[in-house]
Design a protein around this nucleic acid. Structure first.
Lengths: 212, 212
DNA sequence: CCGCGCATGTCACTCGGTGTCAAGATGTCA
DNA sequence: TGACATCTTGACACCGAGTGACATGCGCGG
């Protein structure tokens, strides 16, 4: 899944980046920029990795030293979302009802989209309408679900290997996430993500909080 | 998505299959058999399409005339499930509560698994633990969700483009399907699919039937 | 018997992705 | 300053998935 060297690793000391690290980050950004630009305009299959490399001024081989696959460039955009959800969930107070905790957790990536909507919208649209990308994205979501289920099990003293609740609750939360993302994408960003998320969670809250 | 000619089309007259049609079916079955056998034992990436073709006695090119991709062979095994779910849902009586209708709909593929558990189990396991296959499978599920949402909208007089309920309900039902499949797979077929499905639906029923 | 269509095999090609190696840049220590 | 180690890159060869084009062989209707 990961390229050869650690790609764009979060630096231990944000202030003092080594020169090499900054150079790596520069190339990575250049590649990402070029790729997103090309893919969003020409479509996923119509762009070759050679093209992306050329646009960024590096070789195809170098591209693959930064990104595991062509899909990876795009999905990376959404990748941190998963960890964001999980982190937020663990940070929520223990006594909080599942619906509230999960809504706040899912809000993290949604807010990120709502924030820089210009670019995020185009990338989300690219993902949702490109089968190969959608597949990768859903694959990520499946991972998130595992992690969320584990965390929910921890919060409520349930074993995800025995009780169905954790996995189901995580699945419902991500279903809401998915519905919101799609509606936001289809409406060209016109619909308010916060409102969509609230409405989606209103639908699943009765099931979420009926934990026994 | 689909190979060149219509692959294994359901014949209009099951009794009188043309010779050509039977030949196609034969090759398709042979290919499918060989592929599933090889993939399940050696793992997805360790098997080349040339190998599969050789095992079935045809060329690589012919393989791709029957299956759109290597993933396709496996996913096809689960593909009809989607149409099965949808067909069952449309067949359910109109007055039925959503939870009941959806439970019966999702039961169709689950029952198919429970039926020929020997082979189905191995294929399901192959899919769930091979990233590329899982991705394809999830992609299919996304399609099912669209269709189910449309059908649910029809049943309840809601526009899936306006109300979130249809998509959310479809998503919850598929979340249950997913949880059941995974638990069944992880338990090596020991857990009872019917029981798992009932328990999964018990969790989402309050949300499903709270349609307004 | 002849031609038509269909399935197949062969070949060549594109493209995603990887292994390998040699060369250049940089950083360090003496 | 010079020798050495490390890291990044480009170039090249290679594999495997997937496709297009063409030729061949077979069954079927005339």
């Amino acid at each position: 899944m990961s390229p050869d060297p650690a790609p764009t690793p979060a630096p231990a000391t944000p202030a003092a980046l080594s020169l090499a690290e900054r150079k790596r980050r520069l190339v990575s950004d250049e590649l990402s920029e070029a790729a997103l630009q090309l893919l969003a305009t020409k479509g996923f299959d119509a762009v070759t990795v050679d093209e992306i490399g050329a646009a960024a001024g590096v070789s195809k081989r170098t591209f693959f030293r930064y990104f595991a696959s062509k899909e990876d460039v795009v999905v990376r955009f959404l990748a941190d979302m998963g960890t964001g959800i999980h982190a937020e969930l663990t940070a929520r107070p223990a006594g909080e009802p599942p619906s509230t905790a999960l809504r706040h957790a899912v809000w993290v990536p949604v807010a990120a989209c709502a924030g820089h909507s210009e670019r995020a919208l185009r990338v989300v649209q690219l993902i949702l309408r490109t089968p190969a990308l959608l597949a990768r994205f859903l694959e990520r979501q499946a991972e998130w679900r595992d992690h969320l289920a584990a965390e929910l099990g921890r919060r409520h003293g349930l074993d995800p290997e025995i009780d169905l609740y954790p996995r189901m609750a995580a699945g419902m939360a991500l279903t809401a996430f998915d519905a919101v993302l799609r509606r936001w994408s289809d409406s060209e960003g016109a619909e308010d993500p916060a409102d969509l998320l609230d409405r989606a969670f209103a639908l699943i809250t009765p099931a979420l909080d009926a934990v026994g």
